[in-house]
Amino acid sequence: MRSQKRRIAVVPLGEVPGIVPKSIAAHILGYLNVNAEVLSPLRHPDYAYDPRRLQYNAGAVLKALESHSFGRYEKVIGVLDVDLFVPIFTYVFGEAKQGGKYALVSLNRLRKGHGEGAFVPEPIYLERAAKVALHELGHLYDLHHCSDSRCLMHFSGGLEYLDRIPLYFCRYCSVFMRDALSRPRHRRSKG
């Protein structure tokens, strides 16, 4: 009943393989029972390019998303194919402000296999993207990083860690997520 009122938007930023946003939306529906819709792509985030780091500034992309109106969507997940950074980190797979509305998932590093120049098969690539998306969505619903390494909210820096964590929330984080989703909409918004 409530899940029909909540809507999450998955929006490509620039060109991304069409199957990825769809798979992310399907995972959100499947794992959280919340409707997720794939919107038509927004422009490539060239405005966020940092010529010194040769990467894209995640903060600048989030800011651009904020200036867009996504009125009927409670949370928005931007999916992009460029390499993202935040000032203190060399790279990030995803970014979201704790308790916020917008999150990002970068596919740039998710294709890499374990050897030089190797790629992972598509199902693993899609699973990685879904993990990052659900993890960042967890932050948007104010879930913290979890100390349980068998939980989606466990922080996983490198790909080997990302592959090791399962595609589900631990017992506690499930409870916290369920709590967050049962709270009435719009009660808290931290920007």
Partner: peptide, 10 residues
């Protein structure tokens, strides 16, 4: 040493 990998900080 900044910038560092996220896993270094953790």
């Amino acid at each position: 040493l900044k910038p560092f990998k996220p896993e270094q900080l953790s």
